[in-house]
């Protein structure tokens, strides 16, 4: 049986930009995308620690090393610049869960992988 497991997570990232006029989805620093094992266009859940809102969207690649976490388009109604968010992706797997959980600093730079949950 396959279960839906947590696959990737970026913990306590700070939203650097939230703009209704921008196209799309969530822009994430390419470095964080790679470290968390995400891929372009992958479905992610964004949960806003600041205001409690939750939404799902998909990933677009942001400039590597820029620390960008950009909420674009309609989602900007729910998440504002400066909010602290967790970003999660799930995957079907028959094996044991082995999520990549990435911790970042206040400027969204990679700090470390979190231990097992």
């Amino acid at each position: 049986m396959k279960r839906l497991f947590l696959k990737s997570m970026i913990l306590k990232a700070t939203v650097t930009l939230a703009d209704l006029r921008y196209v799309g989805s969530i822009t994430i620093d390419e470095d964080l995308i790679e470290r968390a094992g995400l891929s372009e266009h992958e479905n992610v859940h964004v949960v806003d620690r600041t205001n409690g809102n939750r939404l799902q969207t998909y990933v677009i690649v942001g400039e590597r090393g820029s620390g960008v976490i950009g909420i674009n388009g309609a989602a900007a109604h729910l998440v504002s610049e400066g909010d602290v968010v967790d970003i999660m992706a799930f995957g079907w797997s028959a094996g044991a869960p082995c999520p990549l959980i990435v911790e970042v600093d206040g400027r969204n730079r990679f700090e470390r992988f979190a231990g097992e949950v």
């Binding site: 396959k2 470290r35 891929s39 266009h41 992958e42 479905n43 992706a89 799930f90 079907w92």
Partner: peptide
């Protein structure tokens, strides 16, 4: 890495 192994992911 672990996140990419033998897992089906949801993509737009």
């Amino acid at each position: 890495g672990a996140g990419g192994r033998a897992t089906e992911r949801l993509v737009v």
